[in-house]
Amino acid sequence: MDRHIRWLLVTPAVLIVIALTIFPLGFSLWVSFVQYDFTLGPEHPWVGLDNFVENWKDPVWRASLWRTVWFSLSMVAIELVLGMLLALAMLRPFRGRRALMTLFVIPLFISPVVVGGFFDLFVRRPYGIANQLASWVWPGTVTIDFSNDSPWLYIVLIIADVWQWTPFMFIIILAGLAAIPDTLYEAADLDGAKPRQSFLFVTLPLVLPVVLIAVTFRLIDAAKLFDIIFSLTRGGPGTDTYTTSYYLYQQGFEFFHLGQGTAGAWMFMIMLTFVSYWLVRRLLKPLEEAA
């Protein structure tokens, strides 16, 4: 009985995924190896690896890859640290905690493309408030062009992403923290552990699997960073804020060099697969042990 039902239970989920992805994946694999470019015409001759090579010939693609790496790493790192600190701070009850929790999740409900648009509004001169705010905390009058000057535009992009996604880290880590039974701390107390020691040796190891799942999903999404770029900088000035996803979107969708864009997407996915597989193996280990 169990033997049948176990497969029966996974089948609907697997089927709907396959049903909706098999054609797109097959099609995109084919597109990667043929000429599929609106400007070049309606024929689709086989071009071998040309589409893949074409990406590597473009310095913008190469730069976008590195930018994607350090963008996503720094965004997720900041979100992780902030989310962790916030979860620790919010762990014990206090008055108004419930209301704050509701407030904290609000950014998750705003589309990233809209968040990007609004951060653009905050930082643009002369209408934005960024310089006014900076003048409050910084001596003198601040006149930074936040959306055009390096490194400020990177900082703005990262802040926008952090604003949106820290709640995600926060919630998941808080859940992990909340699940640690008091008995463990009591045991650590009895052993004479200092707060810092009990954090390092009790809290961290126990919360690590939760952190990993949050980091994995955030990292995958951050690596595909598109919406905020799309609405905040459009990749500019020049190509200074092109992420790989934005580059591929431009090539494939805006200018309709679909063959090249799709081939790039496949290469990008393979890279991402390696990273996430490595993460997932670490993720699965504690889950396996849990059983």
């Binding site: 400007t39 055009n148 000057d149 990749g235 020049g238 805006e254 200018f255």
Partner: peptide
């Protein structure tokens, strides 16, 4: 002309990079 969008985009990007000091 054919590829007008690509040409315009390349120019637009170059110009904004000059605005940023290139």
């Amino acid at each position: 002309m054919s590829g007008a969008g690509d040409y315009a985009n390349a120019l637009d990007r170059a110009m904004t990079s000059m605005y940023a000091g290139k």
